[in-house]
Design a protein around this nucleic acid. Structure first.
Lengths: 166, 166
DNA sequence: GTTGAATAGTTGTTCCTACAACCATCACGA
DNA sequence: TCGTGATGGTTGTAGGAACAACTATTCAAC
């Protein structure tokens, strides 16, 4: 069965996308590290908590929303706990479960950090695109996500994000 | 100076893009690991060599083309050398420099691996988009790369890619 | 009740990457 | 020709992430 290679146009699009995949995360990560001393993943964790009711989530749902394995999340939350941005306590309803809650310090951190992060996202993505391109991007990423995640297992990841509300 | 938050439309586009950034590399990486025992980065290194004249490149240019630091590349190439996919030898013109060359085994590996990789790219990206969307994607990623890499330092990364020619 | 399977988390090991320190060579000016 | 700075690479160490192994709790079936 013969391989269907990419034609010129397709190849160009893919190469560019691959480059974005390679470079953009690094750029955003650097900004957060520099300005807030957080990795993107740590920021993401804090942001998810900040949007949750009572700024509290069970480790499992937090892991789902951040596309992390439980072991990974466990390690990261421990570090955030050492920095007093997050606290853990046993879940009252289920003694197996652990809740993670944003501390006041953690909330403050998110509020301080979000503007810079949004600015970086604007600078490198949103503000360089026309409104039509924004819509096109939504449609394109939708299609890709449908192919990458046909079961919708990861849906929580791309339903919410990242901006503290008040 | 007030933060310009993202509006509904912008936020959606960004969240989806962030999800693609998070999920797509993992999907492609898994395919390569499973089918070829290579990380995406290792494959990328082999692919770059396979396209170079005499399948040979200096470590520095190879590092540029793969967006890697020299230390990282050095470690990875050493492992590829242990697997006899690549060989290193001192550069005749410049005694400081080292050349990396694809071995026949390495070439064979690339030829065996490329079809599966292209198929994965098709399955998750190219074939789920219309021809118009392919063009849109090129324009969008172009704009983003312009913002991420204004000096064009990383240009080598997104000028070529990944398909062995014969 | 008690056993067994499934769920929720933590801990430990291994691999990979980033960063720093280091050595060798080249290029150029005194 | 000698030194000084810049270039090209390697090695060592430390931080982060994936995977496996382990503990504890819950749920369901008998």
């Amino acid at each position: 069965m013969a391989t269907r290679w990419l034609d010129e146009t397709q190849l160009t699009a893919w190469v560019r996308l691959a480059a974005v995949l390679e470079l953009l995360p690094g750029v955003l990560d650097s900004q957060l590290r520099r300005d807030a001393g957080l990795t993107h993943f740590e920021y993401y964790v804090l942001a998810m908590l900040s949007e949750a009711p009572k700024r509290t989530l069970r480790m499992t749902s937090l892991a789902q929303q951040t596309n992390a394995t439980l072991p990974r999340l466990s390690h990261v939350v421990k570090k955030l706990e050492d920095r007093e941005l997050v606290e853990r306590f046993p879940c009252p309803e289920d003694a197996r479960a652990t809740n993670a809650r944003l501390t006041p310090t953690g909330w403050k951190k998110v509020c301080e950090t979000a503007p810079g992060h949004v600015a970086a996202v604007r600078q490198h993505v949103i503000d360089v695109l026309t409104p039509e391109q924004i819509d096109q991007l939504t449609a394109i990423t939708d299609a890709i996500l449908g192919a990458v995640d046909p079961d919708g297992t990861m849906t929580p990841i791309y339903q919410r994000y990242d901006v503290p509300e008040s």
